[in-house]
Design a protein around this nucleic acid. Structure first.
Lengths: 144, 144
DNA sequence: AAAGATTGAGAGGTCAATCTTA
DNA sequence: TAAGATTGACCTCTCAATCTTT
């Protein structure tokens, strides 16, 4: 029913987005999902755990490896935390900011063309509100 | 905006679904996505290519491997095609039908609890219609 | 040569165990 | 002992190459 359309739409739009990024010789969408929260953060850096909470599409362990790759590409670097020597920051570099600037229009255009354009203004507003509720539904973790 | 809630909702609901299946000692959702189209098909079987078109969340190559595993579990078997010796069917077995029966209530309940329950009746209808349009938007594959 | 499907090599993900610091 | 983060072993997906049949 509604769930089916939801799954299909997700698959279709993501395919188009990745294709658009790839066609522009840009990194995959996951990189954007990491860089963007860093850009918005107070000092343009976040602790790994905080970052993991933002990047909903990947687990804490996968994030570690992903950050490895992005760091190797020079778009962020790890920094140690002053008052807690266990933790580490992921901190955006200037090259990372620049990459965000290049990815954004491609990402936005792909989503606009395939997703937003299929929705009316009013529908988009309604959908955002309804789906916001989904994300906050109670845990309901009564196993078995 | 709306897109963000969409991505979050997708991640949240899928997590819950996989957790519910796993807690019930059932296979992952992808198996359901393969078995269900077979169940609906004329002879409870489809050619690999047709099946790949139904299972939107995976590519043709990944489907080959996935079908390997499901076949090894005895839920389907491959059959040769009478008039085209290149092709092969994936055909549901009785054990496959039984597995669908066991997965369905768990899957439905998880989606119901996290997704449907957060939407109103009217919203669900609207959403299905709007997202249906997304899946059918034109290809727009003017690279670069 | 092209179509249907699978396979080898490699990229990227998870779970459980580990290392370090609190 | 527990918390923050990473690593080792393993699993699954994709791309390009392959095999078979048309």
């Amino acid at each position: 029913v509604a769930w089916r359309s939801f799954l299909n739409a997700h698959a279709v739009v993501l395919d188009r987005v990745e294709a658009a990024l790839s066609a522009a010789s840009l990194p995959p969408l996951a990189w954007y999902h990491v860089l963007w929260p860093l850009y918005r953060a107070p000092e343009r850096r976040l602790r790994m755990g905080e970052l993991a909470d933002e990047v909903v599409t990947i687990g804490r362990t996968g994030l570690s490896r992903l950050v490895d790759r992005i760091e190797a590409a020079g778009l962020l670097r790890r920094e140690s935390v002053a008052d807690d020597r266990r933790g580490s920051y992921a901190a955006l570099t200037p090259a990372g900011v620049e990459m965000l600037r290049r990815m954004w229009p491609v990402y936005a255009r792909a989503v606009g063309d395939t997703f937003v354009s299929a929705l009316g203004e009013e529908e988009a507003r309604l959908l955002a509100e309804a789906l916001g509720r989904v994300a906050k539904s109670p845990d309901a973790l009564q196993l078995l």
